[in-house]
Amino acid sequence: MKGMTIIVKKTTQLIAGMIFMYGIYIIVHGHLTPGGGFAGGVIVAGSFILVTLAYGGDFLKLVKEESGTTIIESLATIMVILIATAGFLFGTRVFFNNFLPKGVVGQLVSAGVLPLYNIFVGTEVAASIFIIFLSLIIFKEESPK
């Protein structure tokens, strides 16, 4: 079987889930601590990159995976635009209008629409960084000498 040695594979089994959960933690707590959408998205993409490195390209069926991540990235972009223009529905004429209640400072559910932006920006960044990695390792084979 291709890929790296058995030690790296077994450790990847145990650690990939923890890395994914840590990325989600950084994204969701973006309005309370440093980090936010971009940094958390990079860590979420890192968990998929780790699986691809340890198990090799055949394990994830790379070409199918690439079209899937493209769809996820486009959906996330559309959601960000929809939330940004949602202020028009409430009678104002500004982008990025805050139409949700603000909540208490320091709680998890607070700061209006800011956590929603963080979640979709995180999805967008994770999908696009994974696409960059995949295109680097797929298209290198097909390029003419």
């Binding site: 990939a16 889930g17 994914f20 959960m21 989600i24 969701v28 968990s47 709680q107 998890l108 559910v109």
Partner: peptide, 20 residues
């Protein structure tokens, strides 16, 4: 141990177990 925290954690764990 607040309610929104546990809800967000459950959703994230479901996504994580589906992927990995």
């Amino acid at each position: 141990l607040t309610v929104p925290n546990i809800i967000v954690g459950t959703v994230a764990s479901v996504i994580c177990s589906l992927f990995f």
